[in-house]
Nucleic acid binder design. Sequence first.
DNA 1: AAATTGAGCATGTAATCACTCACTTTTTTG
DNA 2: CAAAAAAGTGAGTGATTACATGCTCAATTT
Lengths: 173, 173
Amino acid sequence: MNAALEFFANEGYDATSTSKIAKHAEVSEGLIFRHFGNKKGLLDAIYMQAEDRVKQLFGPILFCTDPLEVITRILDLPASLEEDQYDFWKLQFKLKWEVEYNNPDKMKPVLHKLSWAFSELGYEFPEREAKLLNTLLEALFLGILREGLLSQVDNIDYLKIKYKIKEIPVKAD
Amino acid sequence: MNAALEFFANEGYDATSTSKIAKHAEVSEGLIFRHFGNKKGLLDAIYMQAEDRVKQLFGPILFCTDPLEVITRILDLPASLEEDQYDFWKLQFKLKWEVEYNNPDKMKPVLHKLSWAFSELGYEFPEREAKLLNTLLEALFLGILREGLLSQVDNIDYLKIKYKIKEIPVKAD
DNA sequence: AAATTGAGCATGTAATCACTCACTTTTTTG
DNA sequence: CAAAAAAGTGAGTGATTACATGCTCAATTT
């Protein structure tokens, strides 16, 4: 599964042959089919980890009682991704194009929590603000996965200023 | 090229065989290789249209002299996409994962114009605001291409309110 | 009228694909 | 410890792949 993930994420599912995966994992090709039935079964097995990983990432935030901390921690998430997890998330984002693997509901609890946070903070349109930030969050993830963490630090910093998490620096840009 | 675009965008480059393209285009398979050399040549020929299309989309905005109009028109872009162009942009976004086809510089003129607009409007950090909106813009495009126009109208509307383009509605959500 | 071109075709081919199957080895368990 | 179950193997298989070859034919150009 690790070998498959690496190839699926970086070269694409269709461009990766099962023999390549087997060689890289140092097992026989037949073993893949014994365990996962077929090639798609292997992909699905990897995809299934997504739910757990999302919970692992966002879970702690759902218990925050301080609305400003919720937003801070959400904004810190993209940068907190370990590089050894990039492949996994890359694959998830690539798969989003297939209806079968695109599940916006996965973010619903986060959306709800954000909505609550903005409401607590007295925003006029908390739900709208939540959805907007959620949309933006996805773009931040994408940016980091494609172009590295550095490409998004200023966006994240600026967002923290806008949400009054960070002090406005003395000198403007 | 049209047949190829349709398949490349919806089923993926690697999942699309040249024979399939030829059949759908009602030409012989050999013709593809006469014209484009190899399969990748066909992909490149499609990709090359991107520069033109980007210019076509963003070009007029670069000549706007009213900063608020610049922002308005930028925000209206994602929704202005004709559905028959979806495939093309889908493919572009999918290709962005490959370094070879990921060219952030394409948006530079837009970024510069946005920066100017926010500066004119007296924003404290016009460049940061421009980059943030640009990042967000990509997410809006992605959302529409994957989940349809409806999935993003409220984000766009809300952005217009935030940028003081649209009146704040009487009733909050 | 001869020569050249480019669009188009049918057929062929070596390589690769996902997947199968008969088999052996390792682990679990009563 | 033996039987059963699970893990693992690797040489196949037919189908499909990108691409090559040699050809026709109508429209231009010389």
